[in-house]
Simulated scan of single mutants.
Amino acid sequence: MKLTFLGTGTGIPQARAQSGLIIEVEAGGKKKPLLFDCGCGILQRIYESGYDHRDIDTIFLTHLHLDHVSDVLGLIKANWLVGLTQTHIYGPVGTAQWFDKLMALYPYLKDRLQVNITELTGGTVLKVADCTINTAHGCHSVTTIGYRVEQAGRIAVYTGDTEPCDSFTELARGAHVLVYECSFPLGFEVDNHTTPDMLASHISQHPLHVDRLYLTHLYPHMQGHEQEAIDHIRTVFPGEVHIAEDLMQVDV
């Protein structure tokens, strides 16, 4: 299993693209990229990463905010332009209604695509591409889903946007890699997102049993504060802590 960080930023323009992550698994003896979130800039990042957009037909959405979904239709259309029409989208309740409204704006595409949508709640267990995927609800301003991907004894977890919460601590238990949002620096007052001090406070009460932690979804406010975020979290977390970067690749 391999992770490729396509976008590690947010809705404010910066060097980082918006949210997007590939988890590469083995399916039928071949490598298969599963795409988690697809914000603005992710279609270009897919190209830059060396992946082929034609190989991506399975998308998992954590929630429906623009910085996590705005390139979904662009990816689907790119595949349609080369004769590929089938896509499966997994996402929270409301995903089907969102996509239907999107298609209503582009009637020339509506009858030319074969898009299957599966809406998920926390506690769902899926079998997709020869791996097991578990879900849990996070704590955000809208319904959000985190994903735990297991294959051949290796485990990767991706949270999407959230405050620190028990459900994601449990979802990540025993994971080799946890990708967790850390939007703002120490001392920043915010809800619906995570800061290093919020995460450290939660970990001190609810230990995080994972090997490696990668911080993503970084606002421009985090520039210059990356190392202090790492150092603060390390005071309560014994595993590795890293700042994710666009196009970084990680073996699980």
Score class of each variant (00 low, 15 high):
residue 121 T to D: 12
residue 129 A to L: 08
residue 102 L to V: 13
residue 186 L to W: 11
residue 186 L to N: 09
residue 199 L to N: 10
residue 156 A to T: 08
residue 2 K to I: 00
residue 200 A to C: 11
residue 81 L to F: 06
residue 124 T to Y: 11
residue 195 T to V: 07
residue 221 H to K: 08
residue 15 A to W: 13
residue 35 L to D: 01
residue 33 P to F: 14
residue 77 K to N: 05
residue 16 R to G: 08
residue 71 D to S: 07
residue 218 L to G: 04
residue 46 I to F: 06
residue 151 Q to P: 09
residue 89 I to F: 07
residue 148 R to D: 08
residue 61 L to A: 05
residue 56 I to P: 03
residue 213 L to D: 02
residue 52 D to S: 15
residue 244 A to D: 13
residue 73 L to I: 13
residue 121 T to Y: 12
residue 92 P to Y: 05
residue 115 V to R: 05
residue 249 Q to K: 14
residue 192 N to Y: 15
residue 193 H to T: 12
residue 22 I to L: 15
residue 84 L to R: 14
residue 13 P to H: 03
residue 118 T to S: 13
residue 81 L to C: 06
residue 182 C to W: 07
residue 220 P to W: 01
residue 251 D to L: 08
residue 112 R to N: 15
residue 128 V to T: 00
residue 42 I to H: 08
residue 4 T to W: 07
residue 226 E to W: 06
residue 186 L to H: 14
residue 13 P to V: 13
residue 111 D to C: 02
residue 243 I to K: 03
residue 93 V to D: 07
residue 1 M to R: 01
residue 64 L to W: 09
residue 54 R to I: 01
residue 184 F to K: 13
residue 222 M to P: 03
residue 38 C to I: 14
residue 244 A to N: 11
residue 169 T to E: 07
residue 114 Q to M: 14
residue 34 L to V: 05
residue 4 T to R: 03
residue 188 F to D: 06
residue 119 E to D: 05
residue 25 V to W: 09
residue 142 V to A: 11
residue 211 D to R: 12
residue 203 I to M: 07
residue 47 Y to M: 06
residue 201 S to F: 05
residue 57 D to W: 02
residue 82 V to R: 15
residue 140 H to T: 09
residue 21 L to P: 07
residue 221 H to G: 02
residue 231 D to S: 14
residue 87 T to D: 04
residue 69 V to I: 15
residue 242 H to I: 01
residue 43 L to N: 13
residue 123 G to C: 08
